[in-house]
């Protein structure tokens, strides 16, 4: 019994920890490290998004997309001509056949890049 009492006493002694004089400074150091880690993480996410946007846009513009779009336009034109015989031509089909599809895709890619850039600027 005395043994258990001593162990409890020892646990109490271990639990009694007087506040250190620099407790506040210690907490601030930990908070700073937390903030630093958080900011770094956001930077990495933003940078990854930006890089992804750049890669996506460059792939879109630099690949043989123009040829593909042209062939797609031809297909769309043929399709729309075919459809015209059956139904009236819709605005969307005519927009695609007019070459707007490429510019819509490029525009979307730049908007995506812009969003990530704006996010980065907001954070810092």
């Amino acid at each position: 019994m005395a043994e258990v009492d001593f162990e409890r006493r020892l646990e109490r002694l271990f639990a009694q920890s007087p506040d250190m004089p620099d407790a506040q400074a210690f907490a601030e150091r930990v908070e700073r490290r937390l903030d630093r880690g958080w900011n770094l993480r956001r930077w990495l996410i933003g940078a990854a998004g930006l890089a992804g946007g750049v890669v996506g846009a460059s792939q879109l513009v630099m690949s043989n997309l123009f040829q593909r779009v042209e062939s797609a336009e031809q297909s769309a034109r043929v399709l729309s001509q075919g459809l015209a015989r059956v139904t009236p031509t819709t605005d969307m089909v005519s927009a695609l056949s007019g070459g707007y599809g490429l510019w819509i895709a490029v525009g979307l890619a730049f908007v995506t890049m812009g969003v990530f850039a704006a996010r980065l600027v907001q954070e810092f």
């Binding site: 639990a15 930990v30 937390l34």
Partner: peptide, 15 residues
């Protein structure tokens, strides 16, 4: 979390 560190930092450091 900073408040938790303020409260318990000394105990952990003492240990």
């Amino acid at each position: 979390f900073g408040e938790l560190v303020r409260r318990h930092g000394s105990a952990v450091r003492n240990l």
